[in-house]
Amino acid sequence: MDRRELIIERTVAVKRELAWLGWTKPEHIVHWWGPGNFTATVYEMDVRPGGIWRYSLAPVDGKGDEAYCKATYCEVSEPYRLYYIDSFTDRDWNVAEGSEMPTIIAFEEIAGGTKLTITTRFQEVKQLESAEAMGMIEGYKETLTRLENHFI
């Protein structure tokens, strides 16, 4: 079988309940979501099965395009697991064809913090390879560092 999943694991020095709040409350996520050179704007965040999270990421320096995204929550098991389908959209929130990325965030309480496991599934191998080439792994690493720093 072709590898179509990107799995990022990271332990953050934040209690699981805070990590969960960071991931599910707009007043927190706007401070850390995205790589360090981007700002996040949350337009809607309804964390429940069937709920929608609409957000954008924009380069801090204003150079480059703003990315619009919409996630639909499939499973919300507080404070253990989030499962949503994340997608790129246009400015009117129309999902870009073929951009759907099922994503699972697992929150495991461990000594000294929370182990986060992010699993993102791609429809095709070439989409995974493209995401890796554009820096998705590094972006997630920066994002999780920002999450940790937000609560420290």
Score class of each variant (00 low, 15 high):
V42E: 03
Y55E: 09
G62W: 06
G51D: 05
G36Q: 14
A67S: 11
S77N: 12
V76N: 00
S87H: 13
P49D: 02
V30M: 08
E66F: 01
Y80D: 15
A58Y: 02
G64H: 05
A71C: 08
E27N: 14
S56V: 04
W93N: 01
T41A: 10
E27R: 06
G51I: 02
W33Y: 12
W32C: 05
S56E: 06
P26A: 15
E27S: 15
G50C: 06
G50H: 08
E75Q: 13
Y43C: 03
Y43H: 12
D86C: 01
A40F: 10
H31S: 10
P49T: 04
V60D: 11
D90C: 07
H28T: 06
P59H: 10
W23Q: 10
C74T: 14
R48T: 06
P79G: 09
Y84S: 11
E78G: 02
V60Y: 09
H28Q: 15
C74L: 15
Y55D: 07
W53Q: 03
A71I: 00
D46H: 11
W33T: 01
D46Y: 11
W32P: 02
H31D: 11
Y83N: 12
S56L: 01
G34W: 04
T89K: 05
Y80N: 15
K63D: 11
T24N: 09
D65A: 13
H28A: 15
E66S: 10
K70M: 13
F88T: 11
V47N: 00
S77K: 12
G62E: 09
S77F: 09
C69A: 14
F88C: 09
W33F: 11
Y73S: 00
G64E: 04
K63Y: 08
D90V: 05
Y73G: 00
P26N: 14
I52T: 12
C74D: 15
D46W: 07
A58S: 14
G62T: 02
D61E: 12
P35R: 04
P35M: 05
I85N: 07
G34I: 06
L57S: 07
S87E: 13
V47R: 00
Y55R: 02
G34F: 08
A40D: 13
Y68A: 02
T89C: 11
R48A: 12
G22T: 00
G64I: 08
W23F: 15
A58I: 04
G22S: 03
G50W: 08
K25F: 14
A71F: 01
W93Q: 00
Y55T: 02
I29R: 03
H31P: 00
I85S: 04
A67K: 08
W32G: 04
W23I: 07
L57G: 08
V30P: 03
K70Y: 02
E27I: 10
P35C: 00
D92N: 15
D65H: 07
W23A: 15
C69L: 13
Y43T: 01
I85T: 09
K70R: 14
T72H: 08
D46K: 13
M45L: 12
Y84I: 03
V60G: 04
G36D: 10
N37W: 09
W23G: 13
E66R: 14
E44H: 05
V47A: 04
